[in-house]
């Protein structure tokens, strides 16, 4: 079942100095219970897109269906009701500084008209869920960034929403805190079966928790698919750049050129492993079965939400024919092989 359906959605802002097409004819389907990531650089239109999902923006054109509701065409009380089923968290947390942790989490419950006794019970549950025990009576100004985002998450979950929208929810956090928040999101997704849509400009975030990803550029979705699939075969230039953010250390390009100079004989190949292939003793098998030497020059294996993903740079040396056969063998093991040449 699809939790979110976008059909030919366009959002145009009219500004004094002309109009801006922030979302350009986007169609998307997001399944119930999945973690769907949208990645793009700043100004790509990600925030505009996610804000269409809870009616904070109205589309200029197209259809927006969330949890069976036609978000673009409802207003007033009906829209407010629908929003209670769509939680949202923000880059800058957007907590009420005048309220304590407990009171902040209770706010959406007050909006929904939950009686006081039940409110208290629910807030206690949520505090447990996000791990904020002991900080209930603190004010936001007394919390760290990660704790503030936990309050944001608890608040977003208060009314048992079907969908959680995350607008750059980890972009203001340091890497370690980012990871702990991402883990919390995965945990919530598993435990509550919540559908999560998150937007980010960091591939790391997509890699860590998303099932599927869409790449956004100039208001358009230029590529989308399973995260592993996109990692394995990025098609668009922009996607390749995002994938490189994660799999290739910054200096790789230079290192490779350097290696090619250093090993004029044989071949330097880039092997891309996905899923199970990453766990096989591939290099050992190659050396055993073929008359070649294989030397691992550099490598990195990343864990994604769906399995491991790795890149190895290997120098294979030997008779030309034998090297070619070894490479064929590797290809047959569901491993993508790219022969590096100095031309690049």
């Amino acid at each position: 079942m699809c939790m979110i359906i976008l059909e030919n959605v366009t959002k145009i802002y009219e500004a004094s100095n002309g109009s801006v097409t922030a979302v350009d004819n986007v169609s998307l389907q997001i399944k119930e219970g999945e973690i769907f990531g949208i990645i793009g650089y700043s100004g790509a239109g990600k925030s505009s897109l996610i804000r269409l999902l809870n009616g904070l923006e109205k589309p200029t054109n197209g259809k927006v269906i969330v949890a069976g509701r036609d978000i673009a065409n409802i207003k007033g009380k009906e829209l407010r009701k629908a929003r209670q089923e769509i939680g949202m968290i923000f880059q800058h947390f957007n907590l009420l500084w005048s309220r304590t942790v407990r009171e902040n989490i209770a706010f959406p419950l007050e909006i929904a008209g939950v009686p006081k006794e039940q409110r208290k019970k629910r807030v206690d549950e949520l505090i447990q869920l996000v791990g904020l025990q002991g900080r209930e009576d603190a004010y936001p100004s007394q919390l760290s960034g990660g704790q503030k985002q936990r309050v944001g998450i608890a608040r977003a979950l208060a009314n048992n929403p079907k969908v959680l929208l995350c607008d750059e929810a980890t972009s203001a956090l340091d890497p370690q805190t980012t990871d702990s928040i991402l883990e919390l999101l995965v945990d919530i997704n598993k435990r509550l079966g919540l559908t999560i849509v998150l937007i980010t400009h960091e591939m790391h975030v997509i890699r860590k928790i998303c099932d599927r990803v869409a790449v956004m550029e100039n208001g358009k979705i230029v590529e989308q698919g399973e995260v592993l699939q996109v990692f394995r075969q990025p098609k668009q230039a922009i996607t390749k750049r995002f994938v490189q953010q994660v799999v290739e250390p910054e200096e790789t390009k230079e290192t490779i050129t350097h290696l090619l100079d250093k090993y004029p004989n044989g071949m330097v190949v880039q092997l891309t492993f996905v899923g199970e292939a990453a766990e096989q003793p591939l290099i050992a098998n190659v050396v055993r079965q073929f008359q070649v030497d294989a030397n691992i020059l550099q490598g990195k294996i990343s864990q994604t939400h769906q399995g491991s993903y790795g890149v190895l740079f290997v120098h294979i040396d030997g008779e030309k024919e034998e090297v070619a056969r070894a490479i064929d063998y590797i290809r047959n093991q569901q491993v993508a092989v790219e022969v590096m040449t100095n031309a690049r």
């Binding site: 809870n54 904070l56 829209l79 407010r80 009701k81 629908a82 929003r83 209670q84 769509i86 949202m88 923000f90 800058h92 957007n94 907590l95 009420l96 500084w97 005048s98 309220r99 706010f107 959406p108 007050e110 909006i111 929904a112 608040r155 009314n159 929208l165």
Partner: peptide
């Protein structure tokens, strides 16, 4: 007042009256 806080309240389904009484004035 941070615009984001008002937006968060809207996203939670708050009515204008709620936003005035529970966000704008207390904040």
């Amino acid at each position: 007042i941070d615009k984001g806080v008002i937006e968060a309240a809207k996203a939670m389904g708050a009515s204008t009256a709620t936003i005035i009484w529970k966000v704008l004035l207390p904040e």
